[in-house]
Design a protein around this nucleic acid. Structure first.
Length: 461
RNA sequence: UCCGGCUUAGCUCAGUGGUAGAGCAGUCGGCUGUUAACCGACUGGUCGUUGGUUCGAUCCCAACAGCCGGAGCCA
């Protein structure tokens, strides 16, 4: 039986098999030891009251943090404060000792995040990373459930791409060429026709262009998978490998897109509150004091939306001093985003209709010819958590935009086909999954919310 | 990549131009059910790396690496 189940008082009196890892051992006196056991099923440990009535009590009294045990357990009402249920063990089988307990890296105390990262294979045995893992799981399940309940299809877009037009950042090269002997063309350039795919290929930076094709038949689709950026970003908000969720909806405009983002974020936050109460209580107490309130606020309050042009006016009138001067046409800097989320709205806010010059080629030109139908959802403490837009569905307008941005039309042939053949208004957005986990847990550094973080000069384990 | 700070015992941290300390962990002993138990003893360190200044460097200087915070790129 999992410990989460065993802790329910309805099982008192039952004899069950519990299996897990020792978190702490306390000796009350000679012949009486308390073991706290955790199996990952919930935040709480279960307490084992071991006495010298056990035939191997001498060994049990030597258990240290990290040892694995299997316990034939009678669940009883606890006579002491601190827990309702505890275990009167019939037997304790020691499955695995800890070699050299003094150097076991996961001690029952607070560790630095750096230390935990250096032992990424063991850090999940801590309260913190265990709780993150459960929240991350609940969120991923909620992502699929949300879309499934609304009739969206999950599209498995490719990880490897030879299309050069995703345009969302530096890419990792995928190649089977021999670095020591690279084939060259007559002009002395690398001859990618000799490479595995017959041309340059990379890891995807976004599944959006691919998922748009499926949207143009299935109407409501989404991707949820790994994404790669070779940017040399050294911040607490960036990873080289991260998971992204990208829904795409047909017969929809920017308002529909904002509404979808709002419903989605609310659904995710509500799920975490419903399913991971114990873990969120822990984060709220020890990691980030306000995280519970922030989640409840997202669930219970209406989403704020502000026009980019209005946001600029608000920032221009702001008493706060900004390092970057505010004027119409600039991209919002971190300090501006922070002012909007923390001072003006005190919660997540969607900023819509940005100047076209600072946004991507596929975004739909508004009637004013100066802005595009883009939206960014900004969250306190995270910054940009969602970026999305209504897509340009008019072929002539799209082609003009490509020309303006000096992009090569032929590179976008299959993407342009979607506008040639039965085009419809459509929109979508991207949500950085790890940023969502950060928001839900209050964890400061993104490297703590993914099991094995990949970042510049960092790909251990 | 840029700016600032940090790097000392297994962990979390004090500290000093004359080669180092605490708490926790560990080991041993004690304690009539403990809750990160408590009490006593013991064990434990080429002070991030490389070079320089100095009679002498863990301490001052430089470079490098890593981490943290901020910025840029973005999700």
């Amino acid at each position: 039986m999992r410990i989460s189940e065993a802790l329910k008082s309805q099982h008192i009196g039952e004899t069950v098999l519990l299996q897990g890892w020792v978190r702490t051992r306390r000796d009350a006196k000679d012949g009486l030891s308390f073991l706290n056991i955790n199996d990952g099923s919930c935040f709480a440990n279960i307490q084992i009251v071991a006495t010298d009535a056990l035939e191997n009590y001498n060994d049990v009294a030597k258990l240290t943090t990290g040892c694995s045990v299997a316990i034939e357990a009678k669940l009883i009402e606890s006579p002491a404060k601190g827990q309702d249920v505890e275990v009167d063990p019939l037997s304790i089988e020691i499955l695995g000792w800890v070699d050299d307990p003094e150097t076991y890296p996961m001690q029952p105390k607070r560790h630095s995040m750096e230390h935990l990262r250096e032992h990424a294979h063991l850090r999940v045995r801590t309260n913190l990373i265990g709780a993150v893992t459960r929240v991350r799981h609940s969120l991923s399940q909620a992502v699929h459930r949300f879309f499934h309940e609304r009739g969206f299809y999950w599209i498995h877009t490719p990880i490897i791409t030879a299309s050069d037009c995703e345009g969302a950042g530096e890419m990792f090269r995928v190649s089977t060429l021999d670095f020591a002997n690279i084939p060259k063309t007559d002009k002395g350039e690398v001859d990618f026709s000799k490479d595995f795919f017959g041309k340059e290929s990379h890891l995807t930076v976004s599944g959006q262009l691919n998922v748009e094709t499926y949207c143009m038949a299935m109407s409501q689709v989404y991707t949820f998978g790994p994404t790669f950026r070779a940017e040399n970003s050294n911040t607490r908000r960036h990873l080289a490998e991260f998971w992204m969720i990208e829904p795409e909806i047909a017969f929809a405009d920017l308002q529909d897109d904002v509404k979808l983002a709002e419903d989605f974020l609310k659904y995710l936050c509500k799920t975490v509150l419903d399913e991971r109460e114990d873990d969120i209580a822990f984060f709220n107490k020890f990691v980030s004091k306000g995280v519970l309130g922030r989640l409840e606020k997202v669930v219970n309050s209406k989403f704020e939306t502000i026009e980019y042009t209005e946001a600029i006016k608000v920032l221009e009138k702001a008493k706060a001093k900004f390092d970057f001067p505010v004027k119409w046409g600039i991209d919002l800097q971190s300090e501006h985003e922070r002012y909007l989320t923390d001072k003006v709205f005190e919660g997540p806010v969607a900023v819509v209709n940005y100047p076209k010059d600072i946004k991507a080629f596929y975004m739909r030109i508004n009637d004013d010819e100066k802005t595009v139908a883009a939206m960014d959802v900004l969250a306190p403490g995270i910054g940009e958590i969602i970026g999305g837009s209504q897509r340009e569905e008019r072929l002539d307008v799209f082609d003009r935009r490509l020309e303006e941005m000096k992009l090569i039309k032929e590179d976008y042939d299959w993407y342009r086909d979607l506008r040639k053949y039965g085009t419809v208004p459509h929109a979508g957005f991207g949500l950085g999954f790890e940023r969502m986990v950060q928001y839900a847990t209050g964890i400061e550094n993104i490297r703590e919310v993914i099991p094995f973080p990949r970042a510049p000069r960092s790909a251990d384990f």
